[in-house]
Write a protein that binds this DNA or RNA. Sequence first.
DNA 1: CACTATAATGCAAAATACCGCAAAAACACG
DNA 2: CGTGTTTTTGCGGTATTTTGCATTATAGTG
Lengths: 256, 256
Amino acid sequence: MQTIDLCQERRELILEELRRNGKVVAAELSARYSVSEDTIRRDLSELAAAKLLKRVHGGALPLTPSRGPYYERDKQHLEVKPGLSLAASRLVKDGQLILFGGGTMNAEIARNLPLDLRATAVTTSPLIALYLLEYTHVEVVMVGGHMNRRELVTCGAEATEKIRGFQADICFLGVCGVHPEVGITSTLYEEVELVRALIEQSGEVIATLTADKLGAIAPFFVASADNITHIVTEKSVPEEQLAPYRTLGIQIVRAE
Amino acid sequence: MQTIDLCQERRELILEELRRNGKVVAAELSARYSVSEDTIRRDLSELAAAKLLKRVHGGALPLTPSRGPYYERDKQHLEVKPGLSLAASRLVKDGQLILFGGGTMNAEIARNLPLDLRATAVTTSPLIALYLLEYTHVEVVMVGGHMNRRELVTCGAEATEKIRGFQADICFLGVCGVHPEVGITSTLYEEVELVRALIEQSGEVIATLTADKLGAIAPFFVASADNITHIVTEKSVPEEQLAPYRTLGIQIVRAE
DNA sequence: CACTATAATGCAAAATACCGCAAAAACACG
DNA sequence: CGTGTTTTTGCGGTATTTTGCATTATAGTG
């Protein structure tokens, strides 16, 4: 049992427990912090009012407790993805060593490769690995490590190090934004080093981008844009938006 | 296992199971959450009123009958697998470090764990990794390496070495046959060393076996049968067939 | 049609929530 | 240091929710 004299501190601890355990029970909190259940109830009401948790009978639950599987989660860009992924998949040639980054776009590419492709493919995503195993003549190497639940990839130093052991012909970046001046950016800090490794270990570097990712800037800087050799994007993107990328020497593939 | 004391929490878990399995059965839910069927019925009624599921006699179904793209490579033993995997999954406890071998049976176990399980899980199978990532409170470690297409697992020296870096509480063997005298055998030579590592690095060693694998002998010898601590098998298996395993000190769990 | 499993309904007990109020503590300020 | 104010807390009383049980009704099955 702990002594808590600051009501705010207690609320922080409640939130912390909620994050850790996925739920909090009013009666347990009352006992743990040696305060009446009324006090706990008030705490929970306040936190609920601040939209930090969801109040339920007997305790509280996180705001977003349940999500479907990752590969069903991403329903965005359903119209353009097939076209983009098909165009991107055509950049692969027999005999190449291919590196796959994470993300739903790359998963889409991985399931749209030529059926008779002969190649070796390396990936950090178990979903992509499963898709790749469908190709009889593709050797699949899965890069292990601790898995990131959000992006469905292994990341961290171990994975990065493994990637650096390959000298690949081509890689498909899972990027969150590419801006001509700011460069390649990511929303996942743990992934930054891994993406850098992909870029450095690969001859061709492919970024397959829906229109909204062209010029977008995510929180974490990865590398300058001229590290990319090919951008695959939608046909609808106006030429003037693409010009700065061409200037950087990036080949543009307009899908569909 | 965590007790469910919040009504809303139970309802969310029901919805989660519904998304995952495509159906829920009132009687099973009642047993799982240790509440009366009346309570479950009320839960289902509420959720149905909120248009979150479709109420049917004996349980409930999703509103959209389309199921997710879960891999179902192995259509064998479809009747007994749910029972076996459920019985096997009950051997897992909160806080454990779990090693998963390959095989469809283990995949089935991985997708039938308690939804609120807190544990760390290590696997060589990308399919199992995907299933495991569905559990919010399970840390997933994917063991990388060259992938075996047939068994859908990474194997080889690299994977074996990684496995030896863990000291696990429990492991689920993906075995092809267990004979009381011949021992544990496998049909995949590359997997032999890896299975040995699983056994040696783990306290409890679980073999989940359909009736036809009990007493079966595959080409490659892995280890003697007494390395197994628990065999989970079908209820229909006669006691005299199990006796030799009991003599070896193996605990038998008869499912269903 | 009979038999079983599941559902619906009403009810009572227990747990939990809500409301108002007052004591206690913390705080601001002259 | 004293005083007034605000915040936090606990308590009593009442309302609401949740749950299990008993009873009656209904659906599924052969």
